[in-house]
Design a protein around this nucleic acid. Structure first.
Length: 586
DNA sequence: GCCGTTTTCGGCCCGACTGTTTTCAGTCG
C-alpha cells in the first residue's frame, strides 16, 4: 500500500474513533499520523519501515508504527476492519450534515437509536430531536435543513469527479472497433461546476456490441435501460450514465442537441426557423412539411455535408460557439456578430498563485511543490500558507513567515529550479475586517491573498463591509474564495458580491478564481460582466499537495464559462511581466 | 496515541460562534 492509501486509512480511523467518542487527543494522533505519512517521501517511508526506524519520526509512536507497517506490507489492517464493523455506516454519513458532529451523533444514536439519515429525518419531523437534552428547536431545524440540502444536491456530482469517471468510459468507447466517433455531451461537456448524469454519444452503424460493452463495464452497478439506440446504467459511484448511439450522418446534430443547455437549444431552433430550417437532434431540414422531425430528416435527407459543429453553426450564420458558452445567455447574438472572445486556454497558464506547503496545512514541502510546478512546465509558483489566526491549519506566525521568506529566497538563489517561487500568504480577514498580519509584514511579501476563514454567518452588510475593508488595506494583491462556498455542501457567506467587485476594481485588487473543484469561487456567472468592467483575476489552484497544482485546469474551464480571455488573467503573464506587475503594485 | 533535562503519568490545545444554557458544550475552520 502506498503512502496516500495508508494516510487515507489513518484518517478514516481518526473519524471512526471520533464517532466512538474516543479521547480526542487519540483521534488527533491518528489524523496527525496521516498527515505525517503523507508528507514523507515514498522512498523514505519504505526505507524506515524496512529498517524499523519509523518511530524516530516525531508524531509516530509504537502503535502507529505497527499499524503503518502492517498496512504497507500486507495492504490490510485488522484493527481497522474490526473498527469499521463496530460502527454503523449510516453514522459516518450523518457526519456530512453541517452543524452535527461526533458528540451529537453519539447522543442521537444512544438516546433515539438513530443510525441513518432516514431515521434522523423522521426523528426531526416527529420533533424528537428538539425534545432531547442539549438540543432545541433551532438545532432540529438546522438538522432538517441540512438533510433537505443533501437531498436537493444529492443527485448531482462535482464536475471534476464526474469527469474522472467519464474519461475512461469515453476512452473505452473510442477503442471499440465499431465506434466511428464518440464524445461526452451534456453539462459535463459544458463544464458546469456540478453534473447530474453523464451523457455519451457514439456514431456507429453497428450498435449492438457497443451497448453490450457499455452495460458490462466494470463499475456498473445496475442497468436501468438497454436497447438498440440507447442504454442507461447506474455506476457504483452513484452517477447515472446514458449512452446514445446514432448513425454517423446524424452525429453532429445529436452532439449539439445533447450538449446545449435547454435555453441554448431553444434559441438555436428559433434561429433556424427564421431561415426556413427545422433543427433537431435528427438533423437540419427545410421547415415546411408534415411529420416528425425524425421522419423529415430521413425522408428528405438531412444536410449530410455538415459533419462538424463549426459547419453546423456556419450554416446558421454563426461563429463557432464553444460548448462552455452554450447556456443561452446571449452567446448566439454575439456569435452572429462574430464577436465572441477568444477564450482562455489551459496552455495560456504560465504559473500558479495561492498554494500551501507543509508549513501550514499542505501535504508537500516547498521543494516538492516547486519541483511539481516545474514538472508541469510552469514558470512560477506562488506560495501562500495560512496566517496565524487559522490555528486549525497551523497558520504561520510572523516569525515563521519571515523564516519561510528566507527559505524561498535561498531556494530561488540556489538555481536548483528554473521555476521561480513567489513569497506570499493567505492572510485571514479577521471578523472586523482587519488583517491577521500587519502592513509591514505584508509589505515584505511578493503578494498577499486575503481570505475569510471565520465568522461565516455574519449579517450580509457586516460581511460585505468586512471584506471591502480588507480589500482597501495596503499591500493586498488578491481576494481569496470570495463567497467561501463549498459546492454541494455549503452555501457561500451572505455577501454583496457586486459591491465587493466594485471595491476590488477601485483598489486594483484581483479577485481569484479559486480552481478547487469544490469551490470554483468566484462563480463563473459573475465573470463576464466583472471582466468587462476591468476586474482582473488569477486562476488559483489552492493546492494542498503536488497533485492539486494541476487543478488550475479545472479553473480554466470555469473561466471559459465566464467568457474570460488571456488578458483577464494575471497568471497568463510571463515571469518577467508578473514580477513587474507585482512590483508596481507594492 | 504521542511525548518527556517535567521521564512512565498527565498534558497535549486556538478562538469565535451558536444554541443551549444560567456557566458551557459542541462545532467549525
Amino acid at each position: 500500500m502506498n503512502k496516500t492509501a495508508i494516510a487515507a486509512v489513518l484518517t478514516d480511523i481518526g473519524t471512526l474513533l471520533e464517532l466512538k467518542g474516543e479521547n480526542p487527543f487519540k483521534t488527533r494522533a491518528y489524523l496527525a499520523g496521516a498527515r505525517i505519512v503523507e508528507s514523507l517521501p515514498e522512498a523514505e517511508l519504505t526505507q524506515r519501515i524496512e529498517s524499523g526506524t519509523l518511530e524516530e519520526v516525531k508524531g509516530i509512536g509504537e502503535a502507529l508504527a505497527q499499524k503503518i507497517t502492517e498496512l504497507h506490507t500486507t495492504g490490510q489492517l485488522g484493527f481497522y476492519e474490526k473498527l469499521k464493523e463496530s460502527i454503523p455506516a449510516g453514522l459516518i454519513e450523518i457526519l456530512s450534515i453541517p452543524g452535527i458532529g461526533p458528540k451529537k451523533i453519539r447522543a442521537l444514536n444512544e438516546k433515539l437509536g438513530i443510525d441513518s439519515i432516514a431515521k434522523l429525518l423522521q426523528a426531526g419531523l416527529d420533533g424528537q430531536i428538539a425534545a432531547l437534552d442539549g438540543f432545541g428547536e433551532k438545532s432540529q431545524e438546522k438538522i432538517l435543513e441540512g438533510i433537505r440540502n443533501r437531498e436537493k444536491y444529492g443527485r448531482r456530482h462535482l464536475w471534476f469527479e464526474a469527469f474522472a469517471v467519464a474519461e475512461p468510459i469515453l476512452a473505452g468507447l473510442r477503442a471499440l472497433p465499431q465506434v466511428e466517433r464518440a464524445e461526452h455531451a451534456g453539462s459535463l461537456r459544458r463544464k458546469m461546476e456540478t453534473v447530474g448524469d453523464l451523457d455519451f454519444l457514439v456514431a456507429t452503424t453497428e450498435p449492438a456490441p457497443i451497448v453490450a460493452w457499455f452495460v458490462a463495464q466494470t463499475g456498473v452497478k445496475e442497468v436501468t435501460a438497454q436497447g438498440e439506440t440507447k442504454a442507461s446504467v447506474r455506476l457504483t459511484s452513484g452517477i447515472q450514465a446514458d449512452l446514445r448511439l446514432v448513425p454517423p450522418e446524424q452525429f453532429v446534430f445529436a452532439l449539439h442537441h445533447f450538449t446545449g443547455s435547454k435555453d441554448h437549444n431553444v434559441a438555436m431552433r428559433q434561429r433556424a426557423l427564421t431561415q426556413g430550417l427545422s433543427m433537431s437532434e435528427w438533423g437540419l431540414v427545410p421547415a415546411a412539411g408534415e411529420g416528425t422531425a425524425k421522419q423529415k430528416a430521413e425522408d428528405r435527407g438531412r444536410m449530410t455535408d455538415i459533419t462538424t459543429e463549426e459547419q453546423l453553426f456556419k450554416q446558421l450564420g454563426l461563429a463557432f460557439i464553444p460548448p462552455e458558452l452554450r447556456e443561452g445567455l446571449g452567446e448566439i447574438e454575439v456569435a452572429e456578430k462574430d464577436a465572441l472572445p477568444r477564450l482562455l486556454e489551459e496552455s495560456d497558464i504560465r504559473g500558479v498563485f495561492h498554494n500551501h506547503t507543509t508549513a501550514s496545512d499542505g501535504h508537500n514541502t516547498l521543494e516538492e511543490m516547486t519541483a511539481a510546478a516545474q514538472a508541469l512546465g510552469l514558470e512560477y509558483l506562488g506560495i501562500a500558507d495560512h496566517s496565524k489566526s487559522s490555528v486549525q491549519a497551523r497558520g504561520l506566525t510572523e516569525e515563521r513567515l519571515l523564516a519561510q521568506i528566507g527559505e524561498i529566497q535561498q531556494l530561488n538563489a540556489s538555481g536548483k529550479f528554473k521555476c521561480h517561487v513567489f513569497t506570499g500568504t493567505e492572510c485571514d480577514i479577521l471578523p472586523d475586517g482587519r488583517l491577521d498580519f500587519g502592513d509591514d509584514v505584508r509589505a515584505a511579501l511578493d503578494y498577499v491573498v486575503v481570505s475569510v476563514h471565520s465568522s461565516f454567518r455574519q449579517e450580509r452588510e457586516v460581511m460585505t463591509k468586512r471584506i471591502i475593508k480588507a480589500i482597501e488595506s495596503p499591500h493586498v494583491t488578491m481576494l481569496g474564495h470570495l463567497t467561501g462556498r463549498l459546492l454541494l455542501e455549503r452555501e457561500g457567506y451572505d455577501v454583496d458580491v457586486e459591491k465587493v467587485i466594485d471595491a476590488a476594481i477601485a483598489n486594483r485588487v484581483i479577485i481569484e478564481l479559486n480552481a478547487s473543484p469544490w469551490r470554483l469561487d468566484l462563480d463563473w456567472r459573475h465573470w463576464r460582466k466583472a471582466a468587462e468592467r476591468g476586474l482582473l483575476t488569477s486562476i488559483n489552484p489552492d493546492a494542498h499537495d503536488t497533485a492539486q497544482l494541476e487543478l488550475f485546469r479545472v479553473g480554466v474551464g470555469a473561466a471559459r464559462k465566464g467568457w474570460l480571455t488571456k488578458g483577464n488573467v494575471l497568471n497568463t503573464k510571463t515571469l518577467a511581466q508578473v514580477k513587474q506587475w507585482l512590483a508596481a503594485r507594492r
